[in-house]
Every structure is written in structure tokens, then in C-alpha cells.
């Protein structure tokens, strides 16, 4: 599974959190551009964890700001598995 495969899935999962219906891309800064608060980001990450059946520790969340960052992390975890 590649980052390219993962990015559209992450964008779909972001749907309920994208209250202003902003255009989403690999460069989208999730908390800043979508105006999601800290708890909202953690809730969204849980959805990503469950969808891909991987673990994304909270410690990692602060380092993965963009959709692309998150896709890279997910790809690394999936390919490790």
C-alpha cells in the first residue's frame, strides 16, 4: 500500500471533521487549515487507526500535521506489517 493509495482514504475519513468543506490534498495541514481542535484531531486519528488496523500513538500525532505526513506514517506501518 503506497502513500498515493492512502491519501484519498485519509481525505474521506476527514470528511466529518472538515466542517467548512475545504479542499483536501497531501499538503493540507489538518489541525490548522481545517480548524480542528486537539481533541478532534485525536478522535480523527482513532478513525484512521481503526480503518487501517494500525496503531498511531499520540506521541506521533504531534509530528504528523499534514495529510501527506499521516499517509507516510500509515504506509510505513502497513508495509511493516
Amino acid at each position: 500500500m503506497t502513500e498515493t493509495d492512502i491519501i484519498p482514504i485519509i481525505c474521506d475519513l476527514l470528511g466529518p471533521y472538515n466542517l467548512e468543506s475545504k479542499a483536501l490534498a497531501a499538503e493540507t495541514d489538518i489541525p490548522a487549515e481545517l480548524n480542528i481542535d486537539s481533541v478532534g484531531v485525536l478522535d480523527f486519528i482513532m478513525e484512521v487507526e481503526d480503518h487501517f488496523d494500525i496503531e498511531i500513538p499520540m506521541n506521533v500525532v504531534s509530528e504528523t500535521r499534514t495529510v501527506g505526513d499521516l499517509a507516510r506514517y500509515v504506509a510505513a506501518q502497513k508495509n511493516k506489517a
Binding site: L42, I45, M46, E55, P57, M58, N59
Partner: peptide, 13 residues
């Protein structure tokens, strides 16, 4: 407190 510990943090529903 969890953050201060430096432990890996996993949040459950």
C-alpha cells in the same frame, strides 16, 4: 501526566 512520562500513549474509545 502521560505526556510527562515519555511513554507511548494509546487512546481508547
Amino acid at each position: 501526566g502521560c505526556t510527562l512520562s515519555g511513554a507511548k500513549l494509546v487512546r481508547f474509545r
